[in-house]
C-alpha cells in the first residue's frame, strides 16, 4: 500500500466538487470529522482571531503604547485615514503593485512552466534557479539588491558594459524607478511558486487532449491559449488570491530596500503600519490601519474565490 504512486485517477477539480456534497448519497454515512480539524482550529483560528480582536480594541484608542490610561477615541482613527495622503498613496502603490506583479509573475511563471515541459536541455538546473529565490529570506537578499541597483552597482555596470550606458540610472534613488525596483524584487522572489504550481498543474493535463488538438492542426500557441490556459484556471485563481493577500501584507522588501522612499514613493500599507506603530508610536492609528488591511484582504480573497468559482462552470 505504501508503495503506490500518487493517485492521479481523478482530476482534482471534479473530485473536489464531489467531496464537497456527494459523500452521503454515494455510500455509507461518513464518520464525524470535527475532532480531526479541532487541533488546527485551536492553533490557528484561536491564536489568530485573538490577535485580531486585541488589535480591534487598540484601534479605538489614541495611544502611544506606553502611557497608562489611553484615551478612547471611537472611530477617529478610521476617519483620520480618509484625510491622510500617505495612506492613500500607500493604497495606490499596493493596488498597482498587486496588478503588475501578478500579471508578470503569471506570464513568466507560465512561460517557464511551458518551456520546462518542452524537452529543454538543462531544464533541471533552470528549475532550481527559478525556485531558489523562494527559499531565500528577503532580509538576507535586501543588501544584495541595494547593492545591485546602486548608481555604481552591478546593474548599471552591466548596462554600461553592453553599450546601454544611457540607461544607467540611480534606480532606487528616484521616485520614478523605485517602485518598479520593488516590483522586480518581488517578482524575482515569488515567480518560483507560480512556476512550480503551473508546472505541477500541467502534468495533470491529459496528453490525449493535447494530441487530439495537434491532430486537428492546432499550433503550439493555439494549444496553449485554448487548451492549457483554461485547464489552469483553478491554479490561476488561487495564485491571484495569494498574490492579493501578499501584496497587502508587503512589508519586508520596501522596508529593507528603500525604507518606503524616496519621498514615500514606495510606501505600502505594510510599511505604513510599521512606521506609524514603531518609530512614530501612533499605536492606535497603526492598529486601525491593520484592521482595514485585514478587511480588504478578506474581501479580495472572497471576491477572487467567488469569481473563480463562477467562471469555472460545469
Amino acid at each position: 500500500m505504501t508503495g503506490t504512486s500518487t493517485p492521479t485517477l481523478h482530476r482534482a477539480a471534479s473530485v473536489s466538487d464531489e467531496a464537497d456534497g456527494g459523500g452521503r448519497r454515494r455510500g455509507p454515512r461518513r464518520p464525524p470529522g470535527l475532532p480531526w480539524i479541532l487541533p488546527a482550529l485551536v492553533l490557528s483560528v484561536g491564536l489568530i482571531y485573538y490577535g485580531i480582536g486585541y488589535t480591534g480594541y487598540i484601534s479605538t484608542l489614541n495611544w502611544d503604547g506606553i502611557s497608562p490610561g489611553p484615551e478612547h477615541v471611537g472611530a477617529h482613527n478610521y476617519t483620520r485615514m480618509l484625510h491622510d495622503p500617505v495612506f492613500w498613496a500607500a493604497v495606490r502603490h499596493t493596488a498597482l503593485f498587486f496588478v503588475l506583479t501578478f500579471v508578470v509573475q503569471t506570464l513568466v511563471g507560465l512561460t517557464f512552466a511551458v518551456l520546462m515541459h518542452s524537452k529543454l536541455k538543462l531544464a533541471a538546473i533552470y528549475k532550481v534557479i527559478v525556485f531558489v529565490p523562494v527559499v531565500l529570506a528577503p532580509a538576507i537578499m535586501a543588501p544584495v539588491f541595494r547593492h545591485m541597483f546602486a548608481p555604481d552597482g552591478e546593474l548599471n555596470a552591466v548596462l554600461r558594459h553592453i553599450g546601454l550606458g544611457d540607461l544607467a540610472q540611480p534606480w532606487i534613488g528616484q521616485t520614478s524607478t523605485a517602485l518598479p525596483v520593488i516590483m522586480f524584487i518581488t517578482i524575482w522572489e515569488w515567480t518560483g511558486v507560480t512556476f512550480v504550481l503551473y508546472y505541477a498543474a500541467m502534468t495533470q493535463i491529459d496528453p490525449s487532449v493535447l494530441e487530439a488538438a495537434r491532430i486537428d492542426g492546432a499550433g503550439n500557441l493555439r494549444t496553449l491559449r485554448s487548451i492549457i490556459w483554461p485547464e489552469l484556471r483553478g491554479t490561476t485563481v488561487a495564485l491571484a488570491m495569494l498574490g492579493a493577500i501578499g501584496a497587502l501584507k508587503t512589508f519586508d522588501v520596501p522596508y529593507l530596500v528603500t525604507i518606503g522612499g524616496p519621498n514615500y514613493a514606495t510606501e505600502f500599507l505594510g510599511t505604513y503600519i510599521y512606521r506609524q506603530t514603531i518609530p512614530l508610536s501612533h499605536v492606535g492609528y497603526g492598529a486601525a490601519l491593520s484592521i482595514v488591511l485585514l478587511v480588504v484582504a478578506l474581501l479580495m480573497a472572497l471576491a477572487l474565490q467567488f469569481a473563480g468559482r463562477e467562471r469555472e462552470g460545469r
Partner: peptide, 8 residues
C-alpha cells in the same frame, strides 16, 4: 505569503 517582520 510574504512572511516577514513587522516589529510593530
Amino acid at each position: 505569503m510574504r512572511l516577514l517582520p513587522v516589529f510593530a
